[in-house]
Amino acid sequence: MPPVFRRSPAARAPRRRARLPWWAVALPVVSFVALLALVAHSSRASAAGVPQGLAPLLEILARIVRSGA
């Protein structure tokens, strides 16, 4: 007699959509912004009164994260 293959109850249940953790979305965004800031930063062309470097950008991102936005 051939073996009988039965599906488990879990196999019959509809599949749920997998949810990404918050950091799986936040890390690529932060990486993109940091790289964009590094590429856009130029020591030859700078506006008067604008803070240069990555530190101001990181401070803004830290404020955003602390506020929970």
Rank of each mutant, 00 (worst) to 15 (best):
A11M: 15
R63Q: 06
P14A: 08
R66Y: 13
P51W: 02
F32P: 02
V30T: 12
I64A: 11
A11Q: 10
L20Y: 02
P2G: 04
A45P: 01
V33T: 13
R6K: 04
G49C: 01
L20A: 10
A62I: 05
A24E: 09
S31Y: 09
S46M: 04
L58R: 09
V30P: 05
W22V: 11
R19A: 03
R16N: 11
P14R: 09
F5A: 08
A37Q: 04
A69I: 14
A69Q: 13
I64E: 12
V4R: 15
M1G: 08
M1C: 08
E59W: 07
A55K: 05
V65R: 06
H41S: 07
P2V: 01
A45C: 00
A13M: 11
A37R: 04
R6N: 04
A40K: 06
A37P: 02
A69Y: 12
L38F: 05
V29A: 02
R16P: 08
R7P: 10
A47W: 03
P56K: 01
A18R: 14
I64L: 14
L61C: 02
I60G: 14
M1D: 09
R12H: 12
M1R: 08
A26S: 09
H41I: 02
F32N: 05
P9W: 11
A26Q: 10
R6T: 01
L57V: 10
S42I: 12
A37G: 02
V65F: 05
V33D: 04
A48T: 05
P3K: 04
R16F: 14
A69K: 11
P28D: 02
I64S: 07
I60R: 15
P56T: 00
L36F: 12
A37K: 02
L61E: 02
Q52S: 12
F32I: 07
P28K: 00
M1P: 08
E59K: 10
A24K: 02
A24F: 00
H41N: 05
L20Q: 09
R7D: 15
L36N: 11
M1H: 09
R6L: 03
A40R: 09
R44K: 13
V29D: 01
S42M: 08
V39Q: 06
H41D: 03
R6H: 02
L58A: 09
P3E: 08
L27S: 04
S67Q: 15
L20D: 05
V30Y: 13
P2A: 03
S8I: 06
R15H: 10
L20F: 05
M1I: 11
A18L: 13
S46F: 01
R16K: 14
A24H: 05
R17T: 10
R66P: 10
R63W: 01
L27H: 00
R16E: 10
